[in-house]
């Protein structure tokens, strides 16, 4: 996985191995499914759609009523755009190159965040310290979590370079 700036500054290019693109496409499809089909009491959905008023049930329900559909739509669109951009028709396509403008890059950043929030919930990342039991619970999900963070971090290094 390589992230590079586009000439002209406004945008980035992401180069993925075919396997990475397939993995990302599959994960994006799963995020879309969680948003579409997730049960109301799914804690992962609670991470994606937090309670805006933890101490005021009435205000909390009203906030949810007015914001939920639009938040879910935005998150689903981001997931679908990543899924579609990374869809690989045949396995031996080599590398997949994706060019994103600033707005599309934001879609990827927010999707990667939502993906990591869901994976963190599934594998139980709930503090900064590693827990040996948790780390062995599901290596695949944890690897995907770390990798999604690596992709996002690499994108941010190009989108928002820290000047010395």
């Amino acid at each position: 996985m390589i992230v590079a700036g586009l000439g002209g500054g406004e945008g980035i290019r992401i180069v993925l191995e075919t396997e990475e693109a397939m993995l990302l496409s599959e994960l994006a499809d799963q995020v879309d499914s969680v948003l579409l089909l997730g049960e109301a009491d799914d804690p992962a959905l609670g991470r994606l759609l937090p309670n805006a008023y933890p101490e005021d049930l009435e205000a909390s329900e009203e906030f949810t009523r007015y914001t939920r559909d639009s938040l879910v739509d935005g998150k689903r669109q981001a997931a679908q755009s990543v899924r579609d951009a990374t869809a690989v028709d045949h396995v031996d396509a080599g590398v997949v190159q994706i060019e994103l403008d600033q707005a599309q890059a934001w879609g990827w950043l927010t999707f990667l965040t939502d993906l990591r929030l869901i994976l963190a919930e599934r594998v139980g990342v709930d503090d900064d310290e590693g827990d040996a039991d948790v780390e062995t619970r599901d290596d695949y999900l944890r690897a995907a979590y770390e990798w999604a963070g690596f992709v996002q971090g690499s994108m941010l290094e190009v989108l928002d370079p820290i000047k010395p």
Partner: peptide, 17 residues
Amino acid sequence: MEHHVQAMHGYGLQATV
């Protein structure tokens, strides 16, 4: 503030009013 919190939730940040 509700507008900001909705935006933060869109970005995947935990935010409250």
